[in-house]
């Protein structure tokens, strides 16, 4: 019975798909490639300027991250980021800019619910899972490496 229901659902989904226009795979990919590439290249150029000014490579890298995050968040606040992302798609979501945007976007929207439970809590509604999964898997890697080093 349950299996039969699933089969019908699958058949209907397939049927519905023939009425659904496909996304422009090639065009979207090209846009993502170009914009993503440009972001990486510009940040490399910026990093090179900083190291040329006498900064260590590590510090310069950190400054580049800070600049990218701040720029993306400012653009989100100005209401421009979603317009760019509509065009560039993964080109701005996959770089660290997408992570920065995912913190500000929900927080902005929940302003009316207050600075603590509105903005404060909602900053993590999208970014929270990223931090939780990323940090806990990295800590697990750290512990595994530490254990491996002991034996």
């Amino acid at each position: 019975m349950e299996g039969e229901k699933k089969e019908i659902a699958k058949a209907y989904e397939k049927y519905a798909r023939q009425f659904t226009p496909k996304p422009d795979y090639l065009g979207n990919s090209i846009k993502a490639f170009l914009v993503g590439g440009v972001i990486c290249t510009v940040s490399l150029w910026f990093q090179n300027r900083l190291t040329a000014g006498g900064m260590t490579e590590k510090d310069a890298g950190i400054f580049v991250t800070i600049a990218l995050v701040a720029a993306a968040q400012l653009l989100t606040g100005l209401g421009v980021f979603d317009v760019i992302a509509k065009f560039a798609g993964a080109g701005v979501i996959v770089p660290i800019t997408g992570f920065a945007n995912s913190m500000v976007a929900p927080a902005l929207e929940y302003k009316k619910e207050g600075p603590v439970l509105g903005v404060g809590a909602k900053m993590f509604s999208v970014a929270g899972p990223v931090l939780v999964c990323g940090i806990s898997s990295a800590v697990a890697v750290g512990i595994i490496y530490w254990l491996a080093g002991r034996f």
């Binding site: 659904t20 226009p21 496909k22 996304p23 979207n28 989100t76 209401g79 980021f81 979603d82 760019i84 992302a85 509509k86 798609g89 701005v92 979501i93 997408g98 945007n101 995912s102 500000v104 976007a105 929900p106 902005l108 929207e109 929940y110 999208v126």
Partner: peptide
């Protein structure tokens, strides 16, 4: 949008459907 989907300012692309 904010109740059922994503925040308005979030940079996600809407599929054609």
């Amino acid at each position: 949008e904010r109740q059922f989907r994503m925040p308005v300012e979030h940079g996600n692309q809407r599929p054609p459907s």
